[in-house]
């Protein structure tokens, strides 16, 4: 492996804030496994279904009317970039899950475009996760997952599913899109859980 003279790549910065193997970027790279869906807001809804008494849905208007929080967090992508101090606005998953009592332990997020990702419910509760519809004070751009995406900043960013349309609550875990193709089932960036077996 020969070093390319003068190529600095991306520099690791504040190591206390940057998980192992990650590089800080100032850009916001667009990561995508398929075409960008453009769902009209009048047909958009967010649904919690699965192991619940009855499914709960919010229209875009109803979702916008839910209490929003401003969130500033660092995000860590498995492709090795970390972006510090990203600012979002969205609805806490505590608010959404309170409306749908459940015995389930796992959630599978489902999205426009067919993407899915699995997260233990415990990781979505306790002020750790949101469904966000604004980034940097602006409506969330479709390229970055708008109208709304999941935000679970303590896990690798593929868990923060773009174009989210709801959660399916499940008694047992089921791998999502990348998890099925060999990425880690949980995805803790501080333990560098990138791939199955890490």
């Amino acid at each position: 492996m020969a070093v390319s003279r003068g190529f600095v790549g991306r520099r690791p910065a504040d190591s206390a804030r940057v998980p192992p193997g990650q590089y800080v970027t100032r850009d916001f790279p667009v990561l995508s496994a398929g075409p960008t869906p453009y769902t009209p807001l009048d047909t958009w809804d967010f649904t919690v279904r699965g192991l619940v008494n009855r499914p709960v849905s919010w229209s875009w208007q109803a979702f916008r009317a839910l209490p929003h929080e401003n969130i500033t967090v660092d995000i860590h992508c498995v492709t090795k970039w970390t972006k510090l101090d990203t600012t979002w606005s969205g609805v806490s998953l505590d608010t959404l899950l309170d409306a749908a009592p459940t015995q389930a332990s796992y959630a599978l997020a489902f999205c426009d475009g067919g993407y899915t990702t699995n997260v233990p419910l415990a990781d979505l509760r306790g002020g750790q996760a949101w469904v966000v519809d604004e980034y940097d004070g602006q409506p969330l751009d479709p390229e970055h997952g708008g109208p709304a995406r999941l935000l679970v900043p303590h896990l690798y960013f593929w868990k923060s599913a773009k174009w989210i349309r709801g959660l399916e609550l499940r008694p047992a875990d089921e791998p999502g899109f990348w998890e099925m193709f060999g990425y880690h089932n949980y995805g803790d960036p501080w333990k560098e859980q990138r791939y199955q077996g890490d």
Binding site: M1, A2, V3, S4, F7, V8, G9, R10, P12, Y23
Partner: peptide, 10 residues
């Protein structure tokens, strides 16, 4: 392929 001194490659 470029390689930075810290091993970063792209």
């Amino acid at each position: 392929r470029l390689t930075a001194p810290d091993g970063y490659q792209t």
